[in-house]
């Protein structure tokens, strides 16, 4: 068949003997379509980060306000420290944990240590954590506080609304 000689060498004698012609479907259009599909996938694909869920529960109708939080529960207040920073303050502790920029990870670790210590001191009953963020706190710091409370082993972590 035309075009075959460059790929498959057939000696002249065999070429004369060979009577039957090989029938092969044209592959060029298929390769064109495959390239089109590849181009579509290359241009249309975008990779996104894997996301997961932190499980929480919502308060009953009406919610719980700051004044209703019982003193024995652990109240974690979150305040903004500047435009990008955060300060975590646990009621009952003298000092808050502040973090911004590079020190955010160490602030999260410090918060975790504090929560673990408080849980260790509380024996008998299960301690609940109520997170009370200020309105101008970035959502990432609220999620961070929630995550550290879950990481410290608290089973009941909730949010407190405004008055």
């Amino acid at each position: 068949m035309e075009g075959d000689e460059s790929v498959h060498y057939v000696p002249p004698r065999q070429r004369r003997v060979r009577a039957s012609r090989q029938v092969q479907p044209p592959l060029t259009p298929m390769i064109d379509v495959v390239f089109q599909l590849l181009l579509f996938f290359l241009l249309g694909t975008s990779f996104r980060e894997q996301e997961g869920q932190l499980l929480a529960s919502l308060p009953e109708k009406g919610g719980i306000t700051a004044s209703e939080v019982i003193v024995q529960e652990l109240n974690l207040e979150i305040h903004a420290a500047g435009a990008m920073g955060v300060r975590y303050y646990v009621r009952g502790e003298n000092m808050g944990i502040e973090g911004s920029g590079e020190s955010l990870k160490s602030a999260a670790n410090e918060l975790h240590q504090l929560l673990v210590e408080r849980r260790r001191k509380q024996t008998g009953t299960e301690l609940s954590v109520f997170i009370s963020p200020a309105p101008d706190v970035r959502w990432e710091y609220v999620v961070e506080a929630f995550n550290q409370a879950v990481r410290a082993g608290y089973k009941k972590v909730g949010f407190v609304g405004g008055e």
């Binding site: 980060e49 894997q50 997961g52 869920q53 499980l55 529960s57 999620v143």
Partner: peptide, 22 residues
Amino acid sequence: FEPLMRAAGDAGISRMNISARV
């Protein structure tokens, strides 16, 4: 986010999942 949580509580939804990166 607070109004959203309140509205969900008022609508009778008791469970909440917070999306975060793994």
